[in-house]
């Protein structure tokens, strides 16, 4: 059978194509452009080939930041996913408690990122912050600006506070979509709470968990605003993640070429890791 082609259909997708071109493709191409050329201003460009890439990949600074990023994402996933599931399991399913819990859960998600950073920065300051001052008074000297461990603790706790809700809400959505009959059947079988979780709730939450893990991984891997506000990448470079490093390089030092090369490498790493996560987690679905 011959397919009828209607070229008018292209006009329908044109707005989207234009939008994507201006929002993603063209900026990305600019970065690609910078990454293979050198400039001294005045709009003069010199071909640099893969020099910037080799320079970035050879620098210890890049690898240190990458390791910090990976460590941070691992810690965040290890805390937020189980905690999110645990909270979702214990949220009420009926009655007035539902909207109340949902609102409290959604609140942190509604606060702008730099405000979250400012809140926690103030909270953790050793001189005037409730947490920082309080801990110090209790005999646990706490100074995120001086001690790398304290800085990490601050950023991790802040991120957990800010983003665990997202995992909770996704898991909760997955949980409430399980028909009541499953729980009844399990009850009739005499299945334990753990068995219900292991054999009913967890498999039924698999899809939303996949989304939660992907979102939390990508977000935590690209974290910028909060550590920038709280620690500015310090003390030393202990909380300098790739994104912070990138901005330092591009804006602080005006090294546009290496910064562009680093952006592309960074982007490819996020893409690659997300793809690996996705493939591993959806593998079991195929028969």
């Amino acid at each position: 059978m011959d397919k009828t082609w209607n070229n008018k259909a292209w006009f329908m997708v044109l707005p989207v194509l234009l939008l994507v071109a201006f929002s993603a493709v063209i900026p990305l191409m600019t970065v690609v452009n910078y990454s293979v050329q050198d400039t001294f201003g005045n709009n003069q460009f010199f071909w640099a080939g893969t020099d910037w890439f080799t320079q970035v990949l050879d620098s210890a600074r890049f690898w240190d930041s990458l390791v910090r990023n990976l460590a941070f994402s691992a810690v965040i996933l290890a805390i937020q996913i189980p905690l999110g599931i645990f909270i979702a399991l214990n949220m009420p399913r009926h009655g007035l408690g539902v909207p109340v819990c949902l609102i409290f859960m959604a609140l942190p998600l509604l606060i702008p990122w730099n405000v979250v950073g400012t809140i926690w920065q103030l909270l953790c300051r050793a001189d005037i912050g409730l947490v920082g001052w309080g801990l110090t008074q209790l005999g646990f000297p706490f100074a995120y600006a001086a001690d790398p461990v304290d800085a990490w603790v601050t950023i991790v706790v802040m991120d957990v506070w800010h983003w665990t809700s997202l995992v909770v809400l996704l898991c909760y959505a997955g949980l409430v979509s399980i028909p009541e009959a499953y729980y009844q059947a399990a009850k009739i079988d005499g299945a334990s709470r753990l068995a219900v979780f292991r054999y009913i709730q967890l498999p039924k939450m698999k899809r939303v968990l996949l989304i939660a893990i992907l979102l939390r991984f990508m977000d935590s891997f690209m974290i910028y605003t909060e550590p920038f506000v709280v620690t500015g990448g310090g003390p030393g470079s202990s909380t300098t993640f790739l994104s912070i490093d990138l901005v330092k390089m591009a804006v602080g030092q005006f090294d546009l070429g290496p910064a562009a090369a680093m952006s592309i490498v960074y982007f490819l790493i996020v893409l690659l890791l997300s793809w690996i996560f996705y493939t591993v987690m959806t593998q079991g679905d195929q028969a």
């Binding site: 009959a181 009844q184 009739i188 054999y199 498999p203």
Partner: peptide, 20 residues
Amino acid sequence: RVQDRGVAMVYQQFINYPAL
């Protein structure tokens, strides 16, 4: 309790353990 009664039930929805 239901689990001590020797009851089996089959529902309109197809209820099985999804991952087993």
